[in-house]
Amino acid sequence: MSKGMSLQQRATRLTLIGALTIWAIISVGPIFWVYYSSFKSNSQIVANVWALPHPWVWTNWITVLTSAVNSVPFLTNILNTLIIGIPAVTVVILVGSLAGFALARFRFGGAQAFQLFLLVLLPVPQFAVMVPVWSYMHTLGLTNSRVGLFLVYAAFNLALAITLMRGFFSNFPSDILEAALLDGCTEWYAFWRVVVPLSVGPMITVGILTFGSVWNEFLFAVSLIQDPSKMTVQPALAALSAGATGQLTFGWAQQFSALAITTVIPLILFLLFQNRIFRAVTLQVQE
């Protein structure tokens, strides 16, 4: 491979790979550090903050999951996110697919206005809707409520799902749909019986992206829910640490374990569905 290379080319290549390795270390190093530190005891961490565990301590994760940290175990916070997130993802996939299909396939009055509305929503920062949403949910008595947070997540993740599904459905093979309609199905029936089974792939993509955003969501979660027993993962994680002063409200080891646990689900999803996510991201841009 390197036969035809001049010395200079080889030097350039070495510099290049050196630079890439440095950024790779900056990029992955902190994550790696969090993971191996989560297997150290508190005294090991205090003695040397960057050394590898010696001996390895396997119980930190279980401690942080099961013992009360902010008056409830971290596991409760994880379950809260799942209780809110799984229904939200399901709703977003189904509702987003329906609307995406309608926008791609039907012509109706106001379709353009609807698409413009979805486009306008995109650049509005979420913190600028935080206070209005809180005021509204407060009026409805839906603050400090998992149902309330579920509704907010379903609504605010819908625009992306509709956009992605519309992109997919506008390339959906027409003859399959036509055949179903010619057989006398209604569009509604054809959608559920013919279109949905052939659209599982993109629906999974939308589901992964939505779940990722729900799992990571902090702003709405921290403003809408104060009750620790209803708190989701990210605000609970933030409450574990008191920020820059480094005044940890909990032990170092448990802190690292909570970080590792919170990161493990998106990490697994990403490594499993990497290509799918890259493709969705690239597609989304073309919109």
Partner: peptide, 8 residues
Amino acid sequence: LSGVMPIV
């Protein structure tokens, strides 16, 4: 990977 870690 750095973008995969939750922001908090």
